[in-house]
Design a protein around this nucleic acid. Structure first.
Length: 386
DNA sequence: CGATCCCGCCACATC
DNA sequence: GATGTGGCGGGATCG
């Protein structure tokens, strides 16, 4: 079915030097988010997501699993997830923390005997007590000490699942005082003290995956230990002071904007070769991205948090959008604070990527951000529902 | 060279 | 026994 292909042996001329960055889980997750973070989305089909994002199904599972662990999604049925939205996060975190407390999460580790924690899932909080079908009753007197109690080979799977690991990783932040944790530490803690180097490596690999998507959700951020030491991750959110029954509000991720540099579809380059869109489609649909942040975005959430809206228009805080602006560590001084002022930052700071692609991307970013900002600025001067 | 982490084989779960 | 899920780790890339 070829036509104007002639010979295509040329495989190096066009070699768009494969870039891993374009295929990262984090980016993919961002795209996933900008694709489904809408008020009218209630059901997400894995196949649909995979094809629309232009990736293999396998990758969707990765994203979906960790997103589900933090309450953004919920599995409905095979091949189908429901969109809970970011509003679901606070709740999920609460449950997670509570759960951690109950099972003496940290102590189990810091104590003396390192051990793993096995548990159920949070979900809406209604877990059938009757009993699990498993014959082995895994209810230790106080908590789980020592190994994860096999339970059954079936559970063994869940034991190492990305989802569970995600939750434990999060619990680590929720409980510990130190809000800077390196993946090695996390792996060491969530794993046994003594463990095969191999096991460690695998665990860390997984943590990288998790960290990437959590980053794109803006739950955590990558930094370095004070004074550019070892890389570590910081929890981007006040510790939930379980004072009353309410949850802390969310201060981010609102608008249902898309605004990502390129098209939604992840550029598909094979690891080694070049796959020039064999697709029969023109695929110049990239311009279709209407960064219409559209009307309300506070209407949909309908969550029980109220302080959420103000941050919307002011956008003073930090975070916005599902995208993580690559890496813009220092802004002016050594202040390792959060990114404080994206607006000015966008117009002032110029990353200077030596990579043309990234440069373009950044430009897009800036423009997208600007137009978006302007748009809402005049669209809703002060309107805050109230 | 060590840190990062994408890719996709293939085992296990479900339909 | 086909299809959905998703561990797992080799090895390519990044910094």
């Amino acid at each position: 079915m070829s036509s104007s292909f002639s010979t295509l042996p040329e495989s190096e001329a066009r070699h768009h030097t494969y870039s891993r960055k374009q295929k990262s889980l984090g980016l993919l997750c961002s795209n996933f988010l900008s694709l489904y973070n809408r008020d009218d989305v209630e059901s997400i089909g894995l196949d649909d997501a995979a094809s629309r994002l232009g990736v293999e199904r396998r990758r969707i599972y990765d994203i979906v699993n960790v997103l589900e662990s933090v309450g953004v999604l919920a599995k409905m049925a095979k091949n189908r997830y429901s969109w809970k939205g970011f509003g679901g996060i606070p709740r999920a975190l609460e449950v997670l923390k509570e759960e951690a407390m109950r099972e003496n999460f940290l102590n189990t580790f810091e104590g003396c005997n390192y051990a793993k924690v096995s548990d159920e899932q949070e979900d809406d909080g209604i877990s059938p007590d009757p009993n699990i079908g498993t014959r082995q009753d895994k209810s230790s007197p106080s908590s789980v000490l020592l190994k994860p109690l096999p339970s059954s080979k079936a559970d063994s799977r869940r034991e190492k699942s990305l989802g569970l690991l995600t939750q434990n990783f999060v619990k680590l932040f929720l409980c510990s005082n130190a809000d800077l944790i390196s993946l090695d530490e996390a792996a060491r803690i969530l794993l046994g003290d003594g463990d095969n180097l191999s096991t460690m490596r695998t665990k860390v690999r997984r943590l990288y995956d998790i960290a990437n998507v959590l980053s794109s959700i803006n739950l955590i951020e990558k930094t370095h230990h004070t004074e550019s030491r070892k890389p570590a991750f910081r929890w981007l959110r006040m510790k939930e002071k379980s004072k009353n029954g309410s949850s802390i509000a969310f201060n981010q991720h609102e608008s249902g904007k898309r605004a990502f540099g390129t098209e939604i579809t992840n550029t598909s380059f094979k690891r080694n070769k070049v796959v020039s869109s064999i697709d029969g489609k023109p695929e110049d649909t990239k311009m279709k991205m209407q960064m219409q942040m559209k009307h309300e975005d506070c209407t949909n959430e309908t969550d029980s948090n109220q302080l959420e809206q103000h941050s919307k228009t002011s956008s003073k805080g930090f975070v916005f959008g599902p995208f993580t602006p690559v890496s813009v560590s220092k802004v002016g001084d050594s202040g390792n604070k959060r990114v404080q002022d994206w607006e000015s930052l966008a117009t002032t700071y110029r990353p200077q990527y030596q990579n043309q692609a990234l440069n373009d991307l950044f430009t897009h970013y800036t423009e997208a951000w600007k137009s978006w900002y302007v748009e809402i600025a005049e669209k809703k001067p002060v309107q805050q529902t109230s």
